Simulated scan of single mutants.
Amino acid sequence: MTDSNMHPQIPTPALPPRPGTSGATPAPTYPGMSSGAPQPQQTYPTYPSQPSPSSQPYAEPANNATPATHYADANIPPSTPAGGAPMPNGYGPQQPIPVTVVQQVPAYKLKTNRSLLKYILLGLITFGIYDIVVMYDVTEATNMVATPHDGRKSMNYLLMFFLFGWLSLGIAWLVWYSNLSDRIGNELQRRGMPREVSMADFWLWCILGSLIIVGPFIYLYKLLKATNMMCEDYNARG
């Protein structure tokens, strides 16, 4: 028994021909495609191109441009009438809120009961001590009320009475009473009150009026009255 009988020969399929040979297999065709004809390129839809930005993207509006005054969906409150009356629903001009200014009243009250009669009678009884106390009080009250505004300060009456008045042979008395009268008159005028006493009153009534004897008493009356008015206003308004 030969080998051929034991192993039968199996036929080998033929290999496809090489590309480019005469026996090349034609390329497969698909429905709608004609063989051998060039295929057209697929076209895509075109879209409008975006306009190029302007060279001046933020140009100023024209001078004659009118701002828009109507908005369809805007919730704009109603305007106020020409008369100024407030509109309903709370719209309209707001009224100014009144402000109350509270003036601080001084804690220390100044005396306001000075009188010419007490000055004369109690001065005689106390041998002039009451008169010194009254004039000292007038000086301190004037400094307390007027000094914050005029920046001046009258000398203490005790120093004037016991020292400078005698050393100056009475000249310091004239200057002191003249300046004190002027300060009290200026303070009354600043507070909107009548000027009851002044420097001219001292020279007219106290100096020249001494020739008629009653002149100095008229001056003292005007001085004490003006001091009481100044102290009353200070106690009420500060």
Rank of each mutant, 00 (worst) to 15 (best):
D182N: 12
S210K: 00
H7A: 09
M199W: 12
I120H: 02
L15W: 06
L169M: 14
A62V: 01
A141T: 04
D131N: 14
A200H: 04
Y44Q: 03
L124P: 07
P26N: 11
V145T: 01
L211F: 05
D137P: 02
E232P: 00
R237L: 10
K225R: 09
W166P: 11
P106V: 00
T2M: 01
S115C: 11
Y58D: 14
W173L: 05
F217G: 08
P93W: 12
V134K: 02
L223W: 13
N113C: 06
K118E: 09
G151V: 01
I76F: 12
Y47K: 05
L174M: 12
L169F: 15
L121V: 09
G165N: 02
D73R: 15
Q94M: 12
L158A: 07
L15M: 15
N156V: 04
A27C: 06
E187R: 00
M135A: 00
L180G: 03
Y91R: 09
L188F: 02
D150P: 11
N156I: 08
T12L: 14
N5I: 04
P48K: 10
M6D: 07
C206R: 03
P13N: 09
G209K: 04
V214G: 03
P93Q: 11
V102Q: 12
G32N: 14
L163W: 13
T46V: 10
Y108G: 12
W173Q: 09
S49E: 14
A68R: 14
I218R: 13
A85W: 02
G32F: 03
L116E: 01
L159N: 11
L188P: 13
I129G: 01
M135I: 00
A146R: 02
I212H: 01
P8H: 13
T21Y: 03
V102C: 07
L208M: 07
D201Y: 14
I120S: 07
F202Y: 15
N89K: 08
Y130A: 05
D201L: 06
P11R: 15
W166S: 09
R237V: 02
M6W: 13
G209P: 03
L163T: 08
A27W: 04
R114T: 10
Q42H: 07
L180F: 07
F202L: 07
L188A: 03
Q41Y: 10
Q104Y: 05
D201V: 04
D182P: 00
I207W: 12
L122I: 09
P148S: 02
F161N: 05
P216S: 06
C231Y: 13
M160G: 08
Q56P: 01
I129Q: 00
I120M: 02
P17E: 09
G20F: 11
A172K: 05
N156F: 07
L116Y: 12
A24T: 10
P148N: 06
P8Q: 13
A200L: 15
S54W: 05
K111N: 15
G84E: 08
K222Y: 07
T66L: 10
L110N: 15
P96W: 04
P13D: 10
L158T: 03
I129A: 07
T25K: 00
G165S: 08
L158V: 12
A65V: 05
Y71A: 11
A59R: 15
D73E: 13
V133R: 06
G36L: 10
V145F: 09
R191A: 14
G23P: 01
T80R: 01
G128P: 04
A172Y: 15
L117M: 06
T80Q: 08
